[in-house]
Design a protein around this nucleic acid. Structure first.
Lengths: 142, 142
DNA sequence: TCTATTTCCTATTGCGTTACTAGGCTTTAG
DNA sequence: CTAAAGCCTAGTAACGCAATAGGAAATAGA
């Protein structure tokens, strides 16, 4: 599986936050309830996003999470690469097997490289605002 | 990771067999040595390919494996789908999470569907003969 | 200042999959 | 009959994923 729950949840949460942008800071509890995801698990995922400055978290009463940029400035690719670690389709392209000793003569390496580029290019071409349902970015705005 | 060692090894072996087609049946031992893969592990992989009729195996002295079709009639996609089970990039598209109860309203589902199509279409468009090194399909031919 | 609320941080655990390994059985050519 | 080969069923060690646990630190409001 290329993308695990961690990446899928992260993306859903980012879309959720984009849709509820106008409501200011959103507490984790609210997101978890809306998305049907365990609070504790979500905590780990959001921590990763905060550390990478994709989200800002604030604690205490009235705290919660907000996007640090407008939705059109996030790509799906960067969100998934961050939370998954890598989007490489095979270990050969992921540092592990890098310099596999056979790479010079490997007849299949080009397939993996092309596939890798295909995947990353597509996901880097989709921005967060493209996933926000029309007219749902305006809740709480009178 | 989308493709594990099982799929990668399978593909390398298929290319190996395509390159040595003219030599008739090739014993596992020879393939394993040439590719640097454990004989026992390869056995499992080749068994899968034989059961799917992509290879023919014959035992006994003089036995070994051969392709059942010309290389241009295999696609990388079918080889990988067989050995990996599925090439779906997310569990949502893989029967597991199928009918995820949220799929009607899921804002990210289209991304996964597009990605899935992209991956499968690309891999189904690459045939085995495209991976065979030029002039290497003619060993043993005088 | 106290308290409720909320994020932040570090571990740990159960479970399934992956990557192999082991051993024996069956078939085939010479 | 025998050596060479594939076929078949298990087993196992290690790893990553998905989730849980427990508490520390910050913040706003009473």
């Amino acid at each position: 599986m290329l993308v695990s729950t961690k990446g899928r949840y992260a993306l859903r949460v980012m879309v959720d936050l984009a849709e509820h942008q106008a409501a200011g800071r959103i507490p984790l509890k609210e997101i978890a309830a809306r998305q049907g995801i365990s609070e504790k698990y979500l905590e780990n995922i959001l921590a990763t996003l905060v550390r990478a400055n994709m989200l800002s978290g604030m604690r205490g009463k009235g705290g919660g999470y907000v996007l640090t940029r407008p939705p059109e400035q996030y790509t799906v690719g960067e969100i998934l690469r961050l939370t998954e670690g890598s989007l490489a389709p095979v270990a050969c392209l992921d540092g592990d097997c890098k310099g596999c000793s056979r790479s010079d003569e490997c007849p299949t390496l080009d397939v993996w490289k092309n596939l890798d580029k295909l995947i990353n290019d597509y996901l880097d071409g989709v921005t967060l605002d493209a996933l926000v349902a029309p007219n749902e970015g305006y809740d709480y705005v009178i």
